[in-house]
Amino acid sequence: MRQYEVATAAILMLIAAVAMFDTRAGALPDPSGTAPGGLGPGFYPFWAAALIFVTGGAVAYRALVSALPREGVFKDRRSIAAVVTLIVPVIVATSSLAWTGFYAMTAAYMGFFMLSVGRYRWYWAGAAAVLLPAAIYAAFELGFRVPLPKSLLYPAVPF
């Protein structure tokens, strides 16, 4: 547990440090200078980041000195596997969105999930993979005229 606790706090502190570095120019109120009203755009993000940095340091320190058990952040190996099998397809699907378009991605993801996790028969998975994007297409593109991302094949293929 301890190393995860410290690592989490450290990552948040790193983010805070980057933000503080980026906005360091406006960190102090500047009543006479160029910033209108005395507070520049950097003031607020700088101190928000400083808040993270300080409290993050305290959290990390307490994790180091307290008697937390070393292990036990995950329940077991299977629960790690569960999380990974869920998130990896999501990342693959969303990062390919710009090429596949929303509808093909939905069909592939829905079908894949029902086959691999649900162990449905192929025709059920296939039906869902066609019907869900079709229903969304009907509601968004045709009904409310809200365009969702299209594939690279668009406009040769209508989605």
Binding site: A93, T94, F102, T106, Y109, M110, M114, G118, Y120, L132
Partner: peptide, 19 residues
């Protein structure tokens, strides 16, 4: 069932974030 609702939630999350 889980294997239907889970991808469904992911997909509507994507639409929700996008649109």
């Amino acid at each position: 069932p889980y294997a239907i609702i889970t991808p469904f939630i992911v997909i509507i999350s994507i639409i929700g974030a996008y649109s």
